[in-house]
Amino acid sequence: MNKPRMLLAALPLLVGVAQAQQPPESEWRQANRQVAEFPRGHADVLKWEQARQTAMPPVAGKPATLVLNSLAEGVQLAWQAHPELAKPLAQLGREEVALLASGQWQDLSATRLRRIEDAAELIEVAHGTRKTLLAAMAVEQALPYQQQALQAAEAAAELGARMAQTGNWSKLQDAREQLLKVTALQQWQRSQYAADQSRAAVLKALQQWTRRAAQTVRLPQSLPALPAAILSEQAFRDRLARMAATLPAGEQTMMRANAELAYSAYRTAYALAGSSQQDTLKLRQFIYDETVLRYNGMLLNTWDLLAESRALAEARVAAIGAVRDFWLAEADLQLLLLGQVPESFVTLAAGGDSPAAAGH
Rank of each mutant, 00 (worst) to 15 (best):
M137P: 06
V139I: 15
A164M: 13
A90Q: 14
A164R: 13
T268I: 08
A311F: 06
L7R: 07
L300I: 10
A152E: 08
Q147Y: 09
A265F: 04
A318W: 06
T291S: 02
A262P: 02
R284F: 10
L223Y: 01
L247M: 08
L185V: 04
A161K: 08
T246E: 13
E251Y: 06
L306A: 11
T111D: 14
Q146T: 03
R310C: 09
L85G: 11
A249E: 12
A149V: 04
F38W: 10
Q285G: 05
Q197G: 01
Y288R: 15
V97Q: 04
L99A: 00
R130C: 02
P224H: 04
L13P: 05
E25S: 12
A265N: 12
K282F: 09
L261K: 11
Q80E: 15
L66G: 04
E290M: 07
Q187E: 15
Q234T: 05
D279Y: 08
T129D: 05
W209D: 15
R294M: 15
R239L: 06
Q192N: 14
Y263E: 03
Q104S: 02
L113A: 00
A329E: 05
A213R: 10
L180G: 12
A86F: 04
F286W: 15
Q146L: 14
T54M: 11
E73C: 01
A241S: 10
M163W: 09
R218H: 05
F38R: 06
E140C: 10
A271W: 01
S70R: 02
S354G: 07
Q234G: 02
A331S: 09
